[in-house]
Each structure stands twice: as C-alpha cells, then as structure tokens.
Amino acid sequence: MRVGIAAAALTVGAVALDEPAYSAEQTGNNEGASSEQAAGSDSTGIYATARIHYSGSVTKDGSTGNITPSDITWSPPPCWYAPYLGAKDFKKKMSENIDNALNTPGMGGTAGSAIGEVKRHYEDGYGWTDTPGYQDYNVEKDGEGMFWAGVENPDEPDILKRGSCTDLPFWVDNGEAPPPQYEEAVRPEILAALAYQHMRLPDTKVSLAPEGTTKVNLPTWAWLDKAVFDEVHATAAIDVPGFHIEATTTARPVSLTLEPGTPDAQTHPASGECRINADDSIGEPYTKGKADRTPPCGITYLRSSGDGTFKLRATITWDITWTGTGNTGGDDLPDGTFGTTQAVTVQEIQSVNR
C-alpha cells in the first residue's frame, strides 16, 4: 500500500507545483564561515523548512569541495527525511495540493483514487502496516511535533537516487525519534556525511630545498611545517522548534605522498609516503650540513627537465572522524585526500674538465 500512496504523492506534486527541486542560500567558504542549505522538495512538491546550517571550513556553493574519499565506493546520502511543517501549516499546504489535484481536468481512474487515499490518510485516519493515519492532519497536536518530508541532496548526480525519498510526510513528536522504518530520516550520521561532503581542505604548497630549481642526482628535501596546515572542522546542523541535531566532521593530516612527475626519479622514502612526525610536521627542513644526508622526505631526480619542468604532485591524506548529538561519533567515514602540483626545474650539474 505504501507504494501506491507514494505514487499518488508523485501525482499531487506534478500537478500542483511547477517549482525547482532545490533552493539554497550559501555564504562564505573560509574557516569560521557558514552556509545554509534549504531542504529540497520530495515527490509531493513540498519544501521542508528545516535548513542544514554548515559552518567551519565548508565550500561556498555546496559542491563536493576539495576532499576526495579514499574509498571510491563511498558516497554521501542522496536524500533524507527532515522536519518540514507544524500540523496547521501542513494542513493548509497539503490540503491545497490535494484539492488542486482532484480538480484537475482528466484526473480520474487510478490516479484519482490514489489521491483520494492520500486525502483519507491525513483527514480520516486511513493507514496501513506500520503507518497509522491522521485525523484532520494532526492539528490537535500542533506545536507538539512536526511533519517530516523528503529532501534531495542537490549534489547527487543520479536523479533516481536523489529523488528516492518518496514516502509521504509523516509525523514526529518533539523529542522523539522518527519511526524506525524511515532509515533515511536525518540523524547525526547523515549530517556527518554531509559535513564531509562540504568540507574544504587548504591548498598546501610543499617546502622544497633546493627551491624551484634543483640538480640531477641532488636530493631535494620536502617538508610541511605544522604551522602550514592543521585539523579542519566542518559542522552540519538542523535547528527547528522542538528539534536540534548536529555533527562535526574533523579531518587530521596524517601523511604526505610525493609523485615526482617523471619515472626518472627516486622518492624518499621509496614508497613516496612521508608520515607525520611527533610534532605534527611532515618531513624535515633542510639546513646547512645536511648535504650528504638522504632526506627523510624528498625526491632525487635522475634526469634533467630540459627546457620545461616536472609537475611534482603532493597529496595529503587526512584521517576523518566525527562527533554528533547524543554522544554519537566514530571513524566510519573514509579517509580523504587532497593534492596540489607545483613546477620543479631540474638541471644538469655543469662541470669543467681541465
């Protein structure tokens, strides 16, 4: 029966509304900045009033940002259910949609019957297994809870996944958890994943010695000072009357991977991965007196770059953890990576024979 009701809701939305599936307001993209993502519509065309507030280091436009999940199979939630409207406001909105649909010329047969079932569901207590109906849109409980509705993730490229939260809006009392059958109902884990998706990592240029121009067979030292980069935090939160939930996702740098830009080079260590030091730095700055040493983090180029340059790529791996409302949290989100490239000129060592 829930499948039939969801199909009816789709008809209501298609007939009653002609609006975009998503609207948003975004501001800022720096540490301490914040942005707001409006809840999108579900298949009824209804717009959830609960906004996801993003703060910390987040992208300005709500895109996936700089972080790349190390697990290529991971993806953020394509949709979820979130608080929408109180009972009286919901009655006004939903009853208008239903009446408009029922009065649309040609609306009859199976579609008309299904819309009638939606009307009975909210007005006359008509329900089905695990889904009780409502009397007069639950207006006697106005102020004691909210109807929840489906929200699309605007950054989900698959339109079918994005629009898969198609259950009819359902009631949740203030302070109570959504019914267990709604696995996509917003919870700290979902907000943590969305904060991860919006996280913006800093552009980091690796310090090199020699800087810019090096010599063939001369070890080039590479390092990152602790002052150059640090933990990055991004928070996603929903705060509406009777309901508050949030999660903060933290990215901590753990290693630097060097790719010389040519196969004619040796990395130090051989794996090219430089782990973080006890003082949270990576590698070791070059100082006088170290010319005969092998750098703990660096590259030795074996041939000249000629008239051009080699594109050294430096990728930082970030360990991801999160904490959320109700003492929730964990390390179940995948590690993230972010890399930048910089030009390195490699010259032959000139010598004079006598």
Rank of each mutant, 00 (worst) to 15 (best):
V172W: 00
G116D: 11
D124W: 03
G175W: 05
Y122R: 01
L194G: 00
H198T: 09
L208Y: 02
K215A: 14
T131L: 13
V118H: 03
T129F: 06
G145E: 04
K215P: 07
V216L: 10
N153P: 08
S95H: 09
T204H: 02
A111M: 07
A193E: 13
A195V: 04
E183Y: 01
E117L: 05
Y134F: 14
H121I: 08
V206L: 14
E144A: 11
G116K: 13
L191H: 06
G133P: 15
N174G: 13
P188T: 02
D136W: 03
Y196T: 00
L218H: 12
A111I: 07
A192M: 10
E140G: 06
P132L: 08
A111S: 14
R200Q: 13
W171L: 03
W128S: 03
T214Q: 09
L201H: 05
V118D: 03
A149T: 09
E156F: 02
L168K: 06
H198A: 07
A114K: 04
V118I: 08
E140P: 01
N138Q: 10
N97R: 13
P105R: 14
V186L: 04
Y196H: 01
T104V: 02
L102V: 03
N153E: 09
N97F: 14
N103K: 14
A101F: 08
A193V: 09
N100D: 15
K205D: 09
E189Y: 05
D142G: 07
W171I: 00
G112E: 00
T213V: 15
D99L: 13
H121P: 06
G112A: 08
T129I: 14
G112C: 06
K161M: 09
E211V: 07
P132R: 10
K161T: 04
N217C: 12
K119D: 15
C165A: 14
Y137F: 15
S164W: 00
D167S: 15
A177M: 11
T213W: 04
